[in-house]
Amino acid sequence: MRYGFLDEDAKKEIRRATLKAIAIPGYQVSFASRELPIARGWGTGGLQVTLAIINEEDCLKVIDQGCDGSVNAVNIRNFIVSVTDNQTTLDTVCADIIQSRHRIPEEPMREGQTLVLQVPYPEVLTNVEADSYKQKVMHANSDYAKLWVLLYEDTAQFGDSRIGHRYPVMVHDRYAMDPSPIPKYDTKKLNNNKALILLGAGREKKIYAIPPYTKVEPLKFEDREFKVESFANKKCARCGASGVFMDEVHTNEGEVKFYCNDTAYCDKQLEKGAR
């Protein structure tokens, strides 16, 4: 089996798109998305980016909605290991490459790390403009009036934007960008993040990026606060952590419990507590 599954020319094309994406933060670079042993829509964009950038020295972590143990994460991790034989980890701090679906890890990332986000819908303008050529023209002109109108209509009718996740962001004051379906809680982590963030959409054949220390701001009106999911006064029922993004679980007994969404972080807190 060839290292990294993809043939060298495929990797070169993905690497070229990746370099251009790094050079133009937030701009979607087209690439020829390859067939993989998993179906499009199941993380093939992130997977192709990971396979094109990984080398023998990288330690890999794969998470799916904060969990290292979910089916999607396990299968993608197993596949990458089967074609690279690379070392893997559950620890955010130890990882060189983190492929993630819909979450940015709870622990801060550092310089030299790469976060690869799987993206189902890369086009931030999809909800306001269906024509893909017009979307491209709007990006070319930095014309995001329709997004602002959507935001205004929501604010006028409901007091705030109704967008719960995939909240649009402005990158380097130039491109509006879909940050993948991360919760609003994670949106602020994109700003000035120390790690390189690569976003891959396999079905839509797009790669885009946020280099480290790049200004990324949620699209919002100046007089409106950007509100994120609140877990005030909530503690993880497993490790006792607070101030983190949590899953709300309704038990059969009718109780409502909260758990850290980032399971590796939760395990670490539990380990710290046990010492």
Binding site: Y3, G4, E8, K11, K12, R15, T18, L19, I22, A23, A52, I53, I54, N55, E56, E57, E111, G112, L196, A209, P211, P212, Y213
Partner: peptide, 23 residues
């Protein structure tokens, strides 16, 4: 051989992307 070149490409790409991501 080819495999050596591909391995070098993998390692060199990391250098190139790091350099561009952090001018």
């Amino acid at each position: 051989n080819n495999m050596d070149l591909e391995q070098l490409n993998r390692q060199n790409f990391k250098s190139l992307s790091d350099a561009l991501a952090m001018p």
